[in-house]
Design a protein around this nucleic acid. Structure first.
Length: 526
RNA sequence: GCGCCAGUAGCUCAAUCGGCAGAGCAACUGACUCUUAAUCAGUAGGUUCGGGGUUCGAUUCCCUGCUGGCGCACCA
């Protein structure tokens, strides 16, 4: 092994040496009796010798001649191991000398307190559970100060397993994410909602205004889309008599990536027969309050943006109509203003719009520019233009151009989108037809007509409220993460050169019928 | 998509005006039976993100591509 200064080669050499000693470096299992924390907490009560079997990853290693000190880390924390040649025997101690930072090992022994007072394990038996062939970045710590932290964001996202090993706060984020999802599920279950799963692969996509991902089914030789929302299948279930349903699933939107957007994200949608959008607001308040309480233990949450702002999630949230808010902030009555006046106002605020865009888009644009960033406290914005809400029921007080819809804004970000669901099949058909016209005018996000869905509606869908909640954003808020990437274990990244090479190796051969070019023609996209 | 910034050893980072590419940790060899950012002595380790250009000479200057971060635009 002399001269093996390449860490990879050195580790492979140690692996060979272990095998030469008759050690199986990748055994089938290990009987763990204690977690590190259990030993640390239980030590005071351990009157007599108790042998503990622990398993974990070597996070520090200090060989000093015939003695080795090491810390192993398991899910509960770290504990120090003390290995002595004279107690373990030469044979076993030779194995200890072949250990590296990052190896997974098992150790059995008796807890004791070292001269410096640290509760440790006096190791009697040592097992290699998985020899690590690659070096772990050498992060060190003393008195809470971390040295040479693993902080490169790209490296952390690309090799999240290292991030999880080396940055404990990352594990906490994902524990909180799981906790938030657990609460959402439990609260909906408790209210009689049935969790369902609907297709991700769809011949006709819909339920939101977004561009889809397109794929291809070889055996059927047909294009398929990855869903952009869960909405339409769930409403078919309302028709089918499942009066309270929800789905917590992944949706896919072919848009840009930034701090708040990943091409795939987790969307909770629930549909509630015989309720309207006002009742849905109360339920959304409950869900937000409950997740905050259980995940954060408080309703006052500091802004993830790193400002001093603290947001108060205690219901009731403010309820304001979109038209009122725009009037206050931009000084325009969007219900009465001419299209030209709306255009002019948009331009004044710095947002151009294509000439053919629907009136509702101009209004929404005005809102996005003048109001949304200012909505810091949780606020339900209500009553949206009909032309941008083709699946929402007309407003009971102004059915010609408004719908019963709300979006929840917190800290200028949208967290939920909901409406009283349109259940008049003929009206729905007209709305789809209008979308079709926008699509022909060049709006790639306009929603395609879904004949299957219309047929279902014709059988009678109960009046209902439907809600979508952006789970990732809620988790961001509750974990203090400013970037969606930080609440996704594997956020989407462009392939690096390295993974590009890997991918090429794994790519299935070209199949007949697969689109030769990833860019569909304009006709295909329709 | 546009703008700004960044990419140097496994990790964290230096490198003067364009003048031999360095440090700490990790690794390797040796010493060390209570250490804990172990210590001590020594050794090795580089496609300076890729490609091109200017120059006697480029980590450094210019062009271009890639990846990432931030901001803007779009969206949830």
């Amino acid at each position: 092994m002399e001269g093996l200064t390449d860490p990879l080669e050195a580790r492979r050499g140690k692996l060979r040496a272990l095998r030469a000693l008759g050690v199986q470096p990748y055994p089938h299992g290990f009987r763990r009796t204690h977690l590190a924390a259990e030993v640390l907490e239980g030590f005071a009560g351990l009157e007599e010798r108790v042998t503990a079997a622990l398993a974990g990853r070597i996070r520090s290693l200090r060989p000093m001649g015939k003695v080795v000190f090491a810390h192993i880390e398991d899910p509960s924390g770290r504990i120090q191991l003390y290995l002595r040649a004279d107690e373990m025997g030469e044979e076993s101690f030779r194995v200890a000398s072949l250990l590296d930072l990052g190896d997974l090992i098992g150790a059995t022994g008796v807890p004791f307190r070292t001269r410096t007072g640290e509760i440790s394990i006096r190791v009697e038996g040592l097992s290699v559970l998985a020899k690590a062939l690659r070096p772990l970045p050498a992060v060190k710590e003393r008195e809470g100060v971390v040295y040479d932290a693993f902080r490169d964001r790209e490296a952390r996202y690309r090799r999240r397993y290292l991030d999880l090993i080396l940055n404990p706060e990352v594990r906490e984020v994902f524990a909180r994410r799981a906790a938030a999802i657990r609460v959402l599920r439990r609260e909906l279950d408790a209210r009689g909602f049935l969790e369902v799963e609907t297709p991700v692969l769809q011949a006709v996509y819909g339920g939101a205004s977004a561009r889809p991902f397109r794929t291809h089914h070889h055996a059927l030789d047909m294009p398929l889309y990855l869903r952009i929302a869960e909405e339409l299948p769930l409403k078919k279930l309302l028709v089918g008599g499942l009066e309270r349903v929800y789905e917590l699933g992944r949706v896919f939107r072919n848009e840009g990536l930034d701090r708040h957007h990943n091409p795939e994200f987790t969307l909770l949608e629930f549909y509630w027969a015989y309720a309207d959008y006002r009742e849905a607001m109360s339920l959304v308040e409950d869900l937000v309050r409950q997740t905050a309480l259980e995940v954060r233990g408080a309703l006052q949450i500091p802004s993830p943006e790193g400002t001093d702002e603290v947001v108060d999630l205690a219901p009731p949230f403010e309820r304001r109509s979109l038209a009122d808010l725009v009037r206050e902030q931009a000084g325009i009555d969007v219900l009465a203003a001419s299209d030209g006046a709306l255009d002019e106002a948009c331009r004044r605020l710095g947002g151009g719009l294509p000439a053919g865009a629907p009136r509702g888009k101009r209004i929404e644009k005005l809102f996005d520019l003048s109001v949304a960033p200012r909505l810091r406290r949780p606020t339900f914005v209500t009553d949206y233009p009909m032309s941008i809400s083709p699946l929402a029921k007309g407003h009971r007080e102004r059915p010609d151009d408004l719908v019963e819809r709300f979006e929840l804004f917190i800290l200028g970000q949208e967290y939920a989108n909901a409406f009283s669901e349109l259940n008049d099949p003929e009206e729905q058909r007209r709305r789809f037809a209008e979308q079709q016209r926008w699509r022909e005018a060049g709006d790639e996000e306009a929603q395609p007509l879904d004949e299957d869905f219309l047929e279902a509606l014709e059988h009678g869908m109960p009046p209902a409220a439907g809600v979508g909640i952006g789970v990732d954003r809620l988790v961001m808020l509750l974990t203090g993460c400013a970037a969606i990437r930080d609440v996704l274990l594997f956020p989407h990244l462009r392939p690096s050169d390295e993974s590009d090479r890997d991918r090429t190796g794994a790519e299935p051969e070209e199949c007949p019928g697969a689109p030769a070019s990833p860019a569909p023609s304009r006709e295909e996209r329709r």
